[in-house]
Design a protein around this nucleic acid. Structure first.
Lengths: 338, 338
DNA sequence: CTGAAAGCGCTTACAG
DNA sequence: CTGAAAGCGCTTACAG
């Protein structure tokens, strides 16, 4: 095993020499082994093992003009990123789904406009083959327009308001989920159901509010509707406003668990018993839901499925297929708060 | 502006032609503009603008055999990832620091052994120039050994137990921070100070326990020491055990905020008043610290500095300098719990 | 099924 | 300061 050859990294040529074939043949076995004779296949595989060869991804990228990587693009303010575990959960799921295809996930954050410019350049430069778009408020219209113009494959999480036809997406059925929450609350005999809705430039925010409104029909009363920004703090202030405006409410639907947790804090500080006097339902089934006392009853979003489907759809778009849109059902998780 | 040339992406040759120079000169401009005459410089820059040229990263990577990207490697179980916002905070900080150098952050997760194998392969293949190592329990000894053997530049967050001399790192001064907590509590007149320590295969876990023990000296009593795993649940069960074993404790030092929050839940459920009857101090100053009632008094870890210094040190190692180690001071943040 | 050859788009000594 | 040329390590028609 002594060798006087300098210890450089083996290339495809070393493997070819070792296996006694041309480098084209080696390349073919590296890329699926089609149109390769059984003999060559074994020879090449043995040579790969013997030489310790590994594909040089840069060379391959240049030759195929593919990056073989995908970006997870967060266009959310930095604070919300850490407050809300949904992002990490989606990211984890996406990274896992991609791992099966040996595709690394590149994290891109574009909270500010300067960052958006930089990210656009980065994507246009061809650093990634596709983009997983997370949390696009519609105020980022220009940014999304740039993305669409660049023709980079992209799939959004939630409906990309204003780009429904241009960008594929995977969304939970927000509207239907909200309807179910209302039904659930009414079945319990609740008659005065308030809501703390999410940001209205977000599909989850509008969808859940629409479902709530639609299902309440005649009973819908905008004086017991508050709009939050999905943060715990906004849930608390929304709850305070609601309580002041109408002390008779006997149920609250918060558009996410974080706001529900904030609302719960206020409810308890004000001495209301949950769920006896006021029922509280959140949305997401995020980790916070089980840290409160009582734990939160909530509409579960299938985050794992969402991230996996996003990856699947993105890979399809990268392969050249037209972008698809997908809506996934939510599911009520009963716990202590309602 | 009419052109019959097919709309392919401009290369360095297009720029060279447009500027009337060789492509070597264009390349020099692209790489800092050294050894380029002012005239050429202007001509090239104009040509770049006119053609809309962008560097093809894949070609550059192949030519320089550099990936121009860095990995954020999480070797933590998936659950803890979302429960504990520290990881996201570090990741955000690292991504930001890297952005200034136009270096993308690649997210790598290696919770299971299978994942570790895959990640090792990925790194050895040369996909990234360096690795930011986050949360390495020492039970991942083999994995780290592989990493060291591969000679990939790496910087750890916290002291990489067992590899202190092999891998550079940035750590908070855990020991000193714990000492300060004890001092603070004793200055308040607390005489029976218990602790819920962190995992002992982690530098933060051992360092904070050592500081606590050292400062308590004669008073150190292992019957009021519980070991947790940094999760909220373990803080709660640790607190229950402590209370049962010694109802007379009047202060608790939890090795992180999440465990402190769990301990607080138990304390309040058992009717103890915090901080009147029992003082409670956490560690981290993470977002949870301000979601409890009372809010947590805690030792702040300078996560932003930590992530930025990690990036700085990693970049140095990538440049060929020897790996440095760095310890950053912590700071007490007084809030309601002590 | 296989090999020779061109090509992907840069960088970097080297000679001048 | 500049250009011509070699090289980075793959992939992919093409001809056989």
């Amino acid at each position: 095993m002594s060798s006087t050859i300098p210890r450089r990294r083996p290339t495809i040529d070393d493997v070819a020499r070792e296996a006694g074939v041309s480098r084209g043949t080696v390349s073919r076995v590296l890329n699926g082994g089609h149109w390769v004779s059984p003999d060559s296949l074994t020879a090449v595989n043995a040579a790969i093992k013997k030489t310790g060869y590994r594909i040089n991804p840069h060379a391959r990228n240049l030759a195929t003009s593919r990056a073989n990587s995908v970006a997870f693009l967060l266009t959310e303010s930095h604070d919300r990123l850490f407050e809300d575990p949904n992002f990490s959960i989606l990211m984890r799921g996406a990274a896992q789904a991609l791992e099966e295809h040996d595709i690394p996930l590149v994290l891109l954050m574009a909270g500010s406009e300067a960052e958006q410019k930089r990210v656009t350049d980065f994507i246009i430069a061809g650093h990634v083959d596709g983009v997983l778009l997370v949390s696009s408020h519609s105020r980022q219209h220009d940014f999304l327009a740039d993305l669409v113009r660049s023709k980079v494959p992209a799939i959004a999480c939630g409906i990309p308001l204003g780009f429904e036809r241009k960008i594929g997406f995977v969304a939970a059925d927000d509207r239907d989920g909200a309807c179910e929450v209302v039904d659930f609350l009414r079945d319990q005999g609740r008659t005065r159901i308030a809501t703390i809705a999410g940001p209205q430039d977000t599909s989850g925010g509008t969808g859940r509010l629409e479902g709530y409104r639609e299902r309440l029909g005649e009973l819908y009363d905008e004086t017991i509707v508050e709009i939050g920004d999905y943060s715990r703090a906004s849930g608390a202030s929304g709850m305070r406003a609601l309580l002041k405006r109408d002390p008779s409410i006997d149920a609250v639907f918060a558009a996410n668990d974080l706001m529900a947790a904030g609302a719960l804090d206020v409810l308890q500080a004000s001495g209301r018993r949950v769920p006896e006097e006021i029922a509280l339902v959140g949305f997401d089934d995020s980790p916070v839901a089980t840290t409160t006392t009582p734990e939160l009853t909530t509409m579960r979003q299938p985050f794992d499925r969402i991230s996996h489907e996003m990856v699947r759809l993105l890979l399809q778009v990268i392969e050249g297929q037209p972008a698809a849109a997908m809506t996934l059902p939510t599911e009520l998780v009963r716990r202590g708060s309602a």
